[in-house]
Simulated scan of single mutants.
Amino acid sequence: MKPASQARADDRQPAASSLCVAAVQMVSTPRVDENLRTAAARIAEAVALGAELVALPEYFAIMGMSDSDKVGVREHDGSGPIQDFLAASAREHGIWLIGGSLPLSADSPDKVLNSSVAYNPHGQRVARYDKIHLFGFRQGAEAYDESVTIQAGRQPVAFATPFGRVGLSICYDLRFPELYRALGVTELLVVPAAFTETTGRAHWEILLRARAIENQCYVLAVAQGGRHENGRETHGNSMLIDPWGEILDRKLKGPGVVVGTLERDRLDSVRANLPALKHRVM
């Protein structure tokens, strides 16, 4: 696995002592326009609460009636109503905005890239990450195979903010700690997801706290959370976790916003008291 790609040098800023962040939990529908209106209202709510960085969940723009529905609304990289919405929202509110995932054109006409895109407060895109690990699960009548409609990404991605480096990942990636090691040292990991209720109830919180503890950084988990029109139930439980693995805020089910502040002093204290990152030998 290649090292994480970086944001452009001119996006780097002097380190800030704190950063207020928010996770927007949604229960997305098959209708893109409706989901964008919902996202806009929740972004505005997060900004009113002081958020300077806001993240949306996986599939925030569409949770189709079938897996192939997202192929019908896929966009070319850099152009389309979903990407335009994200850029305009970041610029309007003057925030860092991460679109948890949206469907972008892939090599195959019947597949998409499941991509997370990040915009700076000027509305300029600073990073794009294509989901690397594709979910496959079967238990009784419940079955999923993302490889049927999604082309896997290949490159870990992180970008710079005034607070520090932000690493991107999506949902099933959470189960693969080597991806987060490949990102290098980060101050924040953002994990948009649409975890199923079955797997989420068993593993979601445990895995998130483990990623925060082992990487000694904040983790912002941004989930779909409820019963969707296609019958799928997503786990929800969006949360912000600190570098010691403590949960600072969470939203269990339904639409809502999780808000909290990343503190440089807290980050530095954890890393100084237990310098595990410096003790790594592999």
Score class of each variant (00 low, 15 high):
2 K>Y: 05
4 A>P: 07
12 R>T: 11
16 A>C: 08
17 S>V: 13
19 L>Q: 14
21 V>L: 07
23 A>Y: 08
26 M>C: 13
26 M>P: 08
28 S>L: 11
31 R>S: 03
31 R>M: 06
32 V>M: 06
36 L>I: 10
39 A>N: 03
41 A>W: 06
42 R>W: 12
43 I>V: 15
46 A>R: 06
47 V>W: 02
52 E>F: 03
56 L>Q: 10
56 L>K: 09
58 E>W: 03
59 Y>C: 15
61 A>Q: 03
61 A>S: 15
66 S>M: 09
69 D>S: 10
70 K>Q: 14
73 V>K: 00
73 V>E: 14
76 H>L: 06
78 G>S: 04
83 Q>H: 07
85 F>D: 02
87 A>P: 01
87 A>C: 05
90 A>L: 04
92 E>Q: 12
93 H>F: 12
99 G>S: 05
100 G>E: 00
100 G>W: 01
102 L>N: 09
104 L>W: 06
108 S>F: 07
109 P>V: 11
111 K>R: 15
112 V>K: 01
112 V>S: 05
114 N>V: 03
115 S>Q: 09
116 S>T: 10
120 N>W: 08
123 G>E: 07
123 G>C: 08
131 K>M: 11
132 I>K: 01
132 I>V: 13
135 F>R: 06
136 G>Q: 07
136 G>C: 01
137 F>T: 02
139 Q>C: 02
140 G>Q: 13
140 G>V: 13
141 A>F: 04
143 A>W: 00
144 Y>L: 07
146 E>Q: 14
146 E>K: 02
147 S>L: 03
147 S>C: 04
152 A>D: 07
162 P>A: 10
165 R>M: 08
165 R>C: 00
166 V>A: 01
166 V>F: 05
166 V>Q: 04
167 G>M: 10
168 L>V: 06
169 S>M: 09
173 D>I: 05
174 L>M: 13
181 R>L: 12
183 L>E: 10
184 G>M: 10
184 G>F: 11
184 G>Q: 09
190 V>Y: 06
192 P>W: 01
193 A>N: 15
193 A>W: 05
196 T>G: 15
197 E>I: 15
205 E>H: 10
206 I>S: 13
206 I>L: 11
211 R>G: 00
211 R>L: 09
213 I>V: 12
214 E>P: 01
215 N>K: 01
217 C>F: 01
217 C>D: 06
218 Y>I: 03
221 A>E: 03
221 A>S: 15
222 V>W: 02
223 A>V: 01
224 Q>G: 11
229 E>M: 11
229 E>G: 00
236 G>C: 09
237 N>L: 01
237 N>I: 00
237 N>G: 00
238 S>R: 04
240 L>K: 04
241 I>R: 06
244 W>A: 09
246 E>M: 06
246 E>W: 04
247 I>D: 04
248 L>D: 04
249 D>V: 05
253 K>L: 15
255 P>W: 02
256 G>N: 07
257 V>R: 03
259 V>S: 00
264 R>T: 11
264 R>V: 09
267 L>G: 08
268 D>V: 14
268 D>K: 11
270 V>H: 10
271 R>D: 12
272 A>K: 05
272 A>P: 02
273 N>S: 14
274 L>N: 12
279 H>T: 04
